[in-house]
């Protein structure tokens, strides 16, 4: 009789633990679902300030799509080559194009004279960080 009681107690303890675990799992899933539902409802009523908003396809944004797609495709093809000292200008431009696509997009917009100055700078300091800064500064002039 005593054994039965102990066994029953053990079973009921295990049973309630299983139920509790299942319940907590369901509760967690429900909480996550509730969270997602709340943020979706909040999103439907949200908008940004119209003065700050620009469409990504606005004509004023310079379209680099074709250039970017073509060149980033090339860039993904091989291993990244770092800027090293002693490159000729075509090699320098090729490395920029293949490994520093963002900087290259800005470089492409520079005048011939500005490009020559960037290359000249590279010859004295091939550090990519400094070359990038030089390109950015030139593009803002």
């Amino acid at each position: 009789m005593r054994l039965d009681l102990v066994t029953n107690f053990r079973f009921s303890a295990c049973g309630s633990m299983v139920v509790m675990l299942l319940f907590s799992g369901v509760l967690m899933a429900q909480t996550e679902a509730d969270y997602l539902r709340s943020i979706e409802v909040e999103a439907s009523g949200s908008s940004v300030d119209s003065e700050t908003a620009r469409s990504a396809s606005e004509k004023s944004g310079k379209d680099t799509t074709r250039l970017f797609e073509r060149e980033s495709g090339q860039a993904q093809g091989g291993a990244r080559v770092d800027l090293t000292a002693g490159l000729t200008r075509p090699q320098f431009e090729q490395v920029l194009k293949n490994s520093y696509i963002g900087s290259y997009l800005f470089y492409k917009r520079l005048s011939e004279a500005q490009k020559a100055r960037v290359y000249q700078f590279y010859q004295t300091n091939p550090d990519p960080v400094h070359v990038r800064n030089q390109i950015l500064q030139a593009s803002k002039r």
Binding site: S47, V48, D49, E51, A56, G61, D63, T64, E69
Partner: peptide, 22 residues
Amino acid sequence: IHQGKLIKVQRIQDQDHTLTGG
């Protein structure tokens, strides 16, 4: 560069502007 286009990030120049929207 955003979705292949160059976007200029700057602030609203109207110093009397107050925030609207969500």
